[in-house]
Amino acid sequence: MGMILEKLPGITKGMPGGDLILTTADALIDLGRKQSLWPMTFGLACCAIEMMGSYAARFDFDRMGVIPRASPRQADVMIVAGTVCKKMAEPILEIYHQMPEPRFVISMGSCANCGGPYYDSYSVLKGVDRIIPVDVYIAGCPPRPEALQYAFVKLQEKVAKMSLKRGLATPQQEKGSRDLTA
């Protein structure tokens, strides 16, 4: 509780029967959101092995509040870990729409960013951002688990800036949304 009070801007005051906290709804909701970003376990290719490594003993994603969920209905973040082929593009779009809002996308690795080593392949989508909006890109082939953790830190920074007034849109989406549901 002490940590939460430290991070919330506002006033705390002892009251009979409990403490009173005066803060903004934005700050409270964003704090909760950013400390529990649950990604979907959704591996496509090589990067998925590094993603699994991030959940395992050495890198231990749990301490950042990142706990993998098997269902898109329970997930906040989609980690696109690997090459997005044209056949796989449609399921990815479907899964993206199954996730509840607000939803975030991390594009992991060169393949998901731009096609990577398969830039000239007939069957590979040249970047997952052609079908869904991406919040954080990670370079590498495959990126190290540390890079994925850094991406989550960056995503947390972004989530901390969200506000209720702008609806659920992040600042980037407000400027020019490429969300196909819009």
């Binding site: 056949k87 796989m88 398969y118 000239d120 007939y122 590979v124």
Partner: peptide, 11 residues
């Protein structure tokens, strides 16, 4: 199958 067909043999 084919969801990860990257066309390596052709490349």
């Amino acid at each position: 199958i084919g969801y990860l067909h990257r066309g390596t043999e052709k490349l």
